[in-house]
């Protein structure tokens, strides 16, 4: 039964209900965010130095090299979709889709770890950058900040989880671009590209706890 106070609240809320100009659109927002983050990280990385010679061309020459980058692209796309879906009530996908980006991330790491014993392409010092580890960390931050600002406008129910997923996606982007820019040495790639990229995950979770928690 509707009580008088509830009735009065409902009247106030109805009177306050302006037109919603932009209802939440998960996929469109994830695509927008992904493109914006790639653009920013790409420009910053290319601004600091060119792509490694032949790094893109070799995608068509070495299926394993192509595959490890496909794992990365799919993991990043998956994490970003999951992050934005996590900010809309009841939009979380089934468990297997929630696990999929983590499996793809593990596959990416495993593929590069396998490069330690049998490199997918000829290891090369070409494109060596001083401080690529910091570049990955730093260039992931604009994407993380933009994503958090977008998520905050919605309704994230699990702040840390949303932040973690977004952080992994945001960190993955510069890590992936760095794979094409910096030198191709598996141990270096693991410690200086992937590790700082993954480190943005916990950082995102912490930022999520601070910025996304609903009062």
């Amino acid at each position: 039964m509707t009580t008088p106070t509830r009735k009065s609240l409902i009247r106030k809320l109805a009177a306050d209900a302006d037109e919603i100009r932009r209802p939440a659109r998960v996929e469109a927002t994830a695509i927008f965010w992904g493109l914006a983050s790639i653009l920013v990280a790409g420009l910053l990385i290319l601004g600091a130095g060119p792509l490694r010679e032949g790094s893109v061309y070799l995608l068509g020459q070495s299926p394993r090299y192509a595959l490890e980058n496909v794992f990365a692209v799919l993991a990043i796309a998956g994490f970003s979709l999951l992050a934005f879906r996590s900010a809309v009530p009841a939009a979380d996908p089934r468990l297997r889709w929630t696990i999929a980006p983590f499996v793809l991330l593990a596959a990416w790491v495993a593929a590069i770890a396998f490069d330690l014993v049998s490199p997918a392409i000829e290891p090369s010092m070409n494109g060596k950058r001083e401080g690529c580890i910091f570049e990955v960390l730093l260039y992931g931050l604009p994407g993380l900040a933009l994503g958090l600002a977008l998520l905050r406008r919605w309704w994230p129910l699990h702040a840390a989880r949303s932040g973690l997923l977004l952080g992994l996606a945001a960190g993955g982007i510069p890590a992936l671009i760095m794979q094409f820019s910096c030198m191709y040495l598996p141990a270096h790639m693991l410690t200086h590209h992937l590790l700082p990229g993954i480190a943005l995950g916990p950082l995102g979770a912490l930022a999520g706890l601070i910025w996304l928690r609903r009062k």
């Binding site: 809320l13 919603i20 932009r22 939440a24 659109r25 998960v26 009530p89 919605w154």
Partner: peptide
Amino acid sequence: CLLAIHQARHTYD
């Protein structure tokens, strides 16, 4: 709950 639904109404697709 009603207040929360009001605040989250833009997330309904």
